[in-house]
Amino acid sequence: MDKAFIKGLRLIEALALSDQPRGVTDLANALGLTKSNVHRLLATLIAQGYVRQVPPQSHYELTTRIWELGSHVIRRMDLTRIARPAMARLAEQTGETVHLSVLDGSEVVYLDKIESAHHIRAHTSVGARAPAYTVATGKAMLAQMPDSYLDRFEGRMQRYTDTTRITLAELREDIRIAREQGHALVPEGEWREGIAACACAILNRSGELAGAIGMSGPDSRIKRKQLREIAPLVMEAARAISLALGYAPRV
């Protein structure tokens, strides 16, 4: 059995399960390794593109390389195929663009979408990314994560529009409301100007976050009242996908 390989895997697991970047001393203590050993393992993982250094404290976190490998597993599970019927139904019900997203650290990644037939509509690309704190699918997924998960945004929140949340306190309030309502609303674009959106998290067989489904369109057409009326449709779509993934709601 290759002991160095096992140590590297344990280091990857420690970083993957951490809510924030970790330092060498912290990792060495947690894994029962010497700091020089951890340094060597990190250097190898950085060289291979699996880990990056986070300034200014010289802490470390995983890159999306692990996610890219995991995405092949996700594709085998075929979340996109399972979600398609509910996405199509929601697109027909609302007449707006529907997205399927997953959470990757502090970003959302768009796995699939069904475009609105309207000439003026929300534009995104499959495979594109957006800061999770700025979009409805991101907020819906963050609402499923522990409070400590939000700490990663401290000091890293940028303004993209006039309505972008740029403080952790503002984000925590949005997440509190999303948890309370069971869905996330973005009435005025926080990532892109002029986009209104509603989203709900999708849960898997274990009751854990699998992704999110969201509807978006121009805020000139979708006012707050319309968003509130659309929210139950988005929640029903998320529920249908969750059930198809094997999720069993608590009675």
Score class of each variant (00 low, 15 high):
G49R: 08
G49K: 11
Y50K: 04
Y50S: 02
V51A: 07
Q53I: 09
V54I: 15
Q57F: 10
Q57V: 06
Q57A: 09
Q57K: 08
S58C: 11
H59I: 02
Y60N: 07
Y60S: 01
L62P: 07
T64V: 03
T64S: 15
T64W: 10
R65K: 15
R65V: 00
W67S: 00
W67R: 01
E68D: 15
E68N: 13
L69K: 04
L69D: 09
L69M: 09
G70T: 00
H72I: 00
H72Q: 13
H72D: 06
H72A: 08
V73D: 04
V73W: 11
I74H: 05
I74N: 03
I74A: 04
R76E: 14
R76D: 08
D78P: 01
D78T: 00
L79Q: 02
R81M: 02
R81P: 01
A83Q: 02
R84K: 12
P85G: 05
P85I: 04
P85Y: 09
A86L: 01
A86P: 05
A86V: 00
A86S: 14
M87V: 00
A88C: 04
R89D: 14
R89Y: 06
R89Q: 15
R89T: 08
L90R: 08
L90C: 07
A91R: 13
E92C: 03
T94M: 09
T94G: 03
G95Y: 13
G95L: 14
G95Q: 09
G95R: 10
G95K: 07
G95N: 10
E96R: 04
E96K: 05
E96S: 07
E96F: 11
T97N: 09
T97I: 07
T97A: 08
T97H: 05
V98G: 05
V98L: 06
V98P: 06
V98S: 04
H99D: 03
L100V: 00
L100F: 09
S101N: 15
S101H: 11
V102R: 08
V102L: 05
V102M: 06
L103F: 12
D104A: 00
G105H: 02
G105S: 03
S106N: 11
S106V: 04
S106C: 06
E107Y: 09
E107G: 02
V108G: 03
V108T: 14
V109R: 14
V109M: 12
V109S: 10
V109P: 05
V109H: 12
V109Y: 11
Y110C: 01
L111W: 13
L111V: 00
L111F: 11
L111K: 02
D112W: 05
K113W: 10
K113L: 15
K113G: 05
K113D: 12
I114S: 07
I114H: 08
S116E: 05
S116C: 07
H118W: 13
H119T: 03
I120S: 13
R121N: 07
R121P: 08
R121S: 10
A122H: 13
H123T: 15
T124I: 14
